[in-house]
């Protein structure tokens, strides 16, 4: 039976344990959101490049990373790469795995955003003598980013949730902490419910913050 009493007792006395996990989860999510976005933009630009090998390379990257399980990718990077002499610290390996995985999804989001911009925008910019790089940087990307903000927010939420997979390689993030706690107090249901609740607070806050940003950026349009 679910004991509300136990739930409350764990929540009040063991909160620091959860908070420790939250700290690691947030750190993972922030790094992944930041570097995943940056790498994602680069991969998207490669995907849209005029240079065929770049298009091909980015295509393979996107398809492969999206077509294989994140868990397998994490295991390959942490347990597999040392065989090639690449030994990454736990936290670095976990972050790298999340970043390269998330970047593949971000690349597709960014690409669709860029392609949704009317061709006339780029023509107007080029007709003024701006280079293709200047056109991308000052004209296309700012508009594309605005239009993909909802999808980006969604991806950030996914990152927070998927970071829980890193508990399999022993990173002390939220799921790891909750699971460890539950294995000592045997109150699995209550303890894991608390961790679910904490995840929800994180994801809900994230999507709210991005909604706010979206509304701010929409000033100017009508």
């Amino acid at each position: 039976m679910f004991s509300f009493e136990a739930f409350w007792q764990i929540l009040t006395t063991k909160l620091p344990v959860f908070m420790e996990g939250v700290g690691v989860t947030v750190q993972l999510a922030l790094y992944t959101a930041l570097f995943g976005s940056l790498v994602g933009v680069v991969v998207a630009l490669m995907r849209l490049s005029r240079i065929r090998p770049l298009r091909w390379l980015s295509g393979v990257y996107i398809e492969f990373l999206r077509g294989t399980p994140l868990l397998v990718q994490v295991l390959i990077i942490y347990y597999g790469l040392p065989q090639l002499g690449i030994r990454l610290p736990r936290m670095t390996a976990g972050t790298v795995a999340l970043v390269i995985n998330s970047a593949a999804y971000m690349a597709e989001i960014v690409r669709s955003g860029i392609q949704a911009i009317d061709a006339g925008q780029s023509e107007a910019s080029r007709s003024l003598g701006m280079t293709s790089a200047q056109t991308m940087l000052y004209i296309i990307l700012p508009q594309a980013i605005k239009s993909i903000l909802p999808a980006v927010g969604n991806e950030f939420v996914v990152i927070i949730k998927e970071s829980s997979i890193l508990y399999t390689i022993g990173i002390y993030e939220l799921t790891y902490q909750a699971n460890k706690l539950a294995s000592t107090n045997f109150r699995y249901l209550e303890t894991l419910m608390i961790s679910a609740l904490v995840y929800f607070v994180l994801t809900f806050t994230t999507s709210r913050l991005l909604g706010l940003l979206e509304r701010r950026m929409r000033r100017g349009d009508r």
Binding site: D118, G120, Q121, A124, S125, I139, P142, Q143, G220, D221
Partner: peptide
């Protein structure tokens, strides 16, 4: 100058 103006909306 274009038919559809093509001003930069942002």
């Amino acid at each position: 100058v274009f038919q559809q103006f093509n001003l930069f909306p942002h």
